[in-house]
């Protein structure tokens, strides 16, 4: 268990004065990701809310070496940096060991950055990749991404008389990462902060051997239509509805870190949907079947995950 008071003594390296929306949890995720590192960190960010808003010229909120080039290549960037440091060390020009961190949204991870990420992992580069998943292209005005859930209203999948928001299922990106056979892959949420810090620490350690990946739930204030202060509370509901299960895969072994069914805390998906205006149309009694369809998708994914974690699904 992480000692929060001791953890708080570490230096903060993603500071205030950035221009992210009030209440956006992405900078909290970035801040904690930097604090969790056991060595100095070099960061690469993909285009996205966090990148744009923390580095509005001539300001930067990052107190670490940080770089951005484009949307699609954050993992390629870090692969280059990691290799350069290796060569400089071998030539004796520097004598220093770093940790490498990529931080990107779902657009830069699930969609646009996927091939660079997949390639960098396969080539054996050693970096921690953190995705803050806000389930849309928020920075450019809430367009759908492959992380956007079923029936969510976005500017490219608006709700109309016939189509009720996004028609396609969300990509299960964490599982795509598991298929890359890294030492450590995890899913985390801010509501379970100690679990999240533990995962970040494990993620860095795993980069002694391979790349590592952590997917972190990151509610978007304007995109999802929620109140400024609700990101942490909504994360908790996402976890308790099993929409965003907390689990990790270490050396191929699945482990569920928190099972809301066991503690009797599992709640129906409507509790998650009803708090967000992007799902407002689902509350119309005419659309009750859509909620049932949504619930079925959540249950299917949850059952599959439980099986992988060795938990019997016939007992509940």
């Amino acid at each position: 268990m992480v000692n929060i008071k001791e953890f708080a003594k570490r230096e903060v390296k993603l500071v205030g004065g950035h221009r992210l929306c009030a209440g956006c949890p992405a900078p909290t995720i970035g801040k904690l990701a930097l604090m969790a590192a056991d060595k100095e960190v070099i960061v690469s960010s993909a285009t996205g809310c966090l990148e744009v808003s923390t580095t509005i010229y001539p300001y930067s909120a990052w107190k670490v070496p940080w770089m951005h080039t484009a949307f699609e290549n954050t993992a390629a960037n870090i692969a280059g940096v990691e290799t350069a440091v290796k060569v400089l060390n071998r030539k004796g020009i520097i004598k220093k060991d770093f940790r490498y961190l990529c931080i990107a949204g779902d657009g830069g991870t699930y969609d646009i950055g996927l091939q660079a990420l997949s390639g960098a992992i396969e080539r054996g580069h050693k970096f921690l990749y953190v995705c803050y998943d806000n389930e849309s292209y928020s920075n450019t005005g809430i367009q759908r991404s492959s992380a956007t859930p079923l029936f969510a209203n976005t500017t490219t999948d608006p709700v109309g008389d016939i189509r009720k928001g996004k028609q396609e299922l969300r990509k299960n990106f964490t599982e795509i990462m598991v298929a890359h056979n890294m030492k450590y892959i995890a899913q985390a949420a801010l509501s379970n902060i100690q679990d999240m810090i533990m995962k970040l620490e494990k993620g860095y350690k795993a980069t002694d051997h391979t790349a590592a990946f952590i997917n972190i739930f990151s509610p978007c204030i304007p995109g999802w239509g929620i109140h400024d202060g609700d990101a942490v509370m909504l994360s908790k509901i996402a976890v308790d509805t099993c929409f965003w299960p907390l689990y990790e895969v270490e050396d191929g072994q699945y482990k569920l870190n928190y099972n809301p069914e066991e503690s009797g805390k599992k709640i129906p998906i409507i509790e998650f949907l009803k708090l967000q205006s992007r799902f407002r149309h689902l509350l119309d009694p005419k659309n009750a079947d859509l909620i049932a369809e949504f619930q079925k998708d959540v249950d299917d994914r949850w059952d599959k995950l439980k099986k992988k974690c060795g938990i019997r699904t016939d007992l509940v």
Partner: peptide
Amino acid sequence: ARGGSSEDFNT
């Protein structure tokens, strides 16, 4: 940009 310079900005 200078690291941490965003602190000069008033939000």
